[in-house]
Amino acid sequence: MKHLLLTAAATLMLNPVSAVAEDLLSRITADGVLTVGTEARFPPFEFVENGEIVGYSGDIMEILMDSALPEVELKRLDLPWQGILPGLAAERFDYVVTSVTVTPARRDAYYLSVPIADATMAVLKRAGDDSIGAPADMAGKPVGSQAGSAQLAALEGYADTLDDTPKISTYTDFSEAYADLAAGRIDAVVNSLPNLLEAARQRPDIFEVVAPTFGEPTYFSWAGRTDEDSASLNALFDAELKRLIEDGTLAQLQEKWFGGAMNLPSALPAQ
């Protein structure tokens, strides 16, 4: 309650024109700024080119802002993955526009949006490494993934099913894991398939994707807070994304960024 009062008082002080701020969405439209958190190191979803955050999610946001919030300016903060969900909870930004892999624990703690992409796990190896022909060949080998990621959790779950558990190293972000793979310190990196395809596409002489994928089908979504205050903003994002999935816009963008359309449901599967 005290916190609410403080926030209300601060909003009133900063924004004397808008009388009483009802909820997050109305404050965003009144202030004309939507602040979102992004980890811009996840090509081709979100990455930086010439100082601008671009990629699949950048294109989606451009369309979404034009149709749903035309008067509002989009402010995208770039910060490391480990700061994204805590930053959302601490109200450092209004919404998370970065690929958040859907997990049951995250669905409990955050409001996850309609899925934006397929996130099923796959394995990346050094080009020409014949010792890994399928995910199960990771057994007993040093492998890597990103700390705090759902991909790491999936890898750990999968590792337990193998007779000879792989030695898992964790990294601040996937770029470091790829670098260690190239340097030969680890033999495989586990990440979602779209990201690995991009790595192999950019450096075909160094990386190669191992077919097939493993584990349950998973999805990427975006995220908001679960409180009452955020409900209308969450609903707006959901409605827009659902529309873009159904009218084929997302499929077109997937063609552009991933080289093929994904089979995407217009709502997260029931838990």
């Binding site: 811009a40 190191r41 996840f42 090509p43 990455f47 930086v48 080119e49 770039d78 972000d173 996937f174 770029s175 790829y178 670098a179 790595a199 950019q202 450096r203 160094i206 990386f207």
Partner: peptide
Amino acid sequence: QQIASSTF
């Protein structure tokens, strides 16, 4: 870091 991750 941004350059590293977009150019690999």
